[in-house]
Nucleic acid binder design. Structure first.
Lengths: 327, 327
DNA sequence: TTGAAAGCGTTACCAC
DNA sequence: GTGGTAACGCTTTCAA
């Protein structure tokens, strides 16, 4: 920058302003500076800028997994919503290990992000302190934590399960089992489980059985393996409430192999309205979450924050039942 | 850092060294510094480090899509392989739009990454110039481009299709159709298509028909929709070679609805050994690509580069046939 | 094994 | 409309 300044015959300060298209710099001077900078092959140092201004142009985002159609959609919507502002996303995947979050957040914070988007509302005390001491804007997504950091864009995983259990009860199912990940590995999944248990209790159904499909992320193969290991014992229940569509699909496929009639003998439900739920035959009854909208709203909130329009935000994204042929 | 130094009673310089695990700092002092830094909630400023050392600590990675089990696995392996070096990944998704790559690369380069990992070997001239003028290490993955930038970790998509077509021919199939994305939207998919066509020709089979499932990314629903729109006309062929497992699964499911017997009347093959291929009943014949290994090898190469051990690398990652019940 | 001084390239702030 | 000065938080270098 000094070299450019020398070549043009102005001060480095003026060059700095000109290159940022500062209006206060004389238009002609600005053009001259631009040209000479180009000629000299000058490359603006974004790192130095980020250092000096304390603005990194990053928003840090944590996701449990990047290989998940719903999270991927949220990520893309978020990314697109911030792109025109020149904001880039710094992504961190916890792979469903909560203890990873702390390290991850530390790494992400080291880059001075201007905001933090966390998937889920459960965080260790250390993580909370770490974040609070930074005092940066936080958005928690895909959840509706009772005691949030700051902004929230999500839905209640427990409540979302209500509509599934009510639907099953309306269709005469009583003996429910919940198929999900092992205790402690998928906290939103655990919320769904408690939601199912609570709703069943409220409706006067027998206690919901818990079937463990292994540590998160549980997917098709885990659902299939669980069903295979249980075999006809699955018929102790008349409905399997699965934590996600892939799990439900795995279970459903194994049921076909076992000669269990779905939905005749057994109802199966999923969660998330994944592509496989709609393609499966029969279609899997599921809950649709507007993942894209979560990302869009989060991006909108961030833009508001960066523009200085800050306000309390707790957005409840609607979820809806998608009735299929498995219930 | 100054605050930590004050609290510990040493100079900032010693703190700096301690936090970087510099061996020259007394082990006990180092531990004390670590502890107090933690207690104070100190977060190391990577931006300042990047500024001072002229090293960003970033590796930029482009992926066609993050919602893809294979790419996700490559990404995770890459990320893990670089984590101990303190290198973070800056991710950019093209969403299968090649024209996006240029913008994306420009954005990523603005962050001064220390290396660039590109998925695929097709790039616009502008992109090529952009990258070359920066003179940074480049690894192209998931492909084996004839004229690569630099390092390569991948496989020939065309050759991978050979094993599928040979397998089909061995099993007596002759009238092949390729089901893939529209021309121009998925270049690795197009390579698979040409591979299928070439191999069929070499084996003396009739010309391979091309069935267009729409713009990339094509997935279950596109496969299903294509099959539904064709109906019994699918029986003009005796094998459908699908560009990916999800597409194959969509086609397979629709065939069941249409009353087409797979593999009796029609063989179906996929690509990528996705979970759905193994869970599907019957299992889908597919090609397994060691996605994780691609990420691991790429990370290893990058570590070599950062350690100053640079050498030509063109790693051909093996792919293998996974024979299922659909062929 | 530890510390002091200087500086990385930019911009905030104030002066003119 | 332009310029001078200082500083951002760290590390390189040299000295003790």
């Amino acid at each position: 920058m000094r070299d450019v300044a020398k070549a043009v015959g102005v001060s480095p300060m003026t060059v700095s302003r000109a290159l940022r298209n500062d209006e206060t710099v004389n238009a002609k001077t600005r053009a001259r500076i631009q040209k000479i900078a180009d000629d000299l092959g000058y490359i603006y140092d974004t790192t130095a800028q980020a250092f000096r201004t304390r603005k990194s142009g990053f928003v840090a985002v944590t996701l449990p997994s990047i290989n998940n159609a719903n999270f991927a959609e949220t990520y893309c919507a978020l990314s697109n919503g911030l792109a025109d502002r020149g904001i880039q996303i710094l992504l961190g995947a916890t792979n469903y290990r909560i203890e990873r979050e702390e390290d991850l957040v530390r790494q992400l914070l080291a880059r001075n992000p201007e905001a933090l988007v966390l998937t889920g509302g459960y965080h260790s005390d250390v993580t909370r302190d770490l974040i609070r001491s930074r005092g940066l804007p936080v958005i928690e997504i895909w959840d509706l934590p009772p005691d949030p950091f700051d902004k929230v864009v999500g839905f209640s995983n427990a409540k979302a399960m209500e509509i599934i259990v009510e639907h099953l009860a309306e269709n005469g199912r009583r003996k429910l089992a919940f198929v999900g990940a092992s205790e402690g590995s998928d906290l939103r999944g655990a919320d769904r489980r408690s939601g199912a248990i609570a709703t069943a209790a409220r409706l006067g159904l027998p206690p919901v059985a818990i079937l463990d499909a292994g540590p998160a992320p549980v997917s098709m193969r885990h659902g299939a393996a669980l069903a295979a290991s249980m075999g006809k014992a699955l018929l102790d229940y008349d409905a399997l409430v699965c934590v996600s569509d892939p799990v439900a699909f795995g279970v459903l496929n194994e049921c076909r192999r076992l000669g269990i009639d779905v939905p005749g003998q057994l109802a199966i439900t999923g969660f998330g309205n994944f592509e496989v739920a709609a393609i499966s035959e029969p279609r899997i009854t599921t809950v649709d979450v507007d993942a894209k909208r979560i990302g869009e709203v989060a991006a909108e909130i961030l833009v508001d924050i960066f523009d200085g329009r800050s306000q309390e935000r707790r957005e409840n994204i609607r979820v809806k039942l998608v009735a299929g042929g498995t219930s």
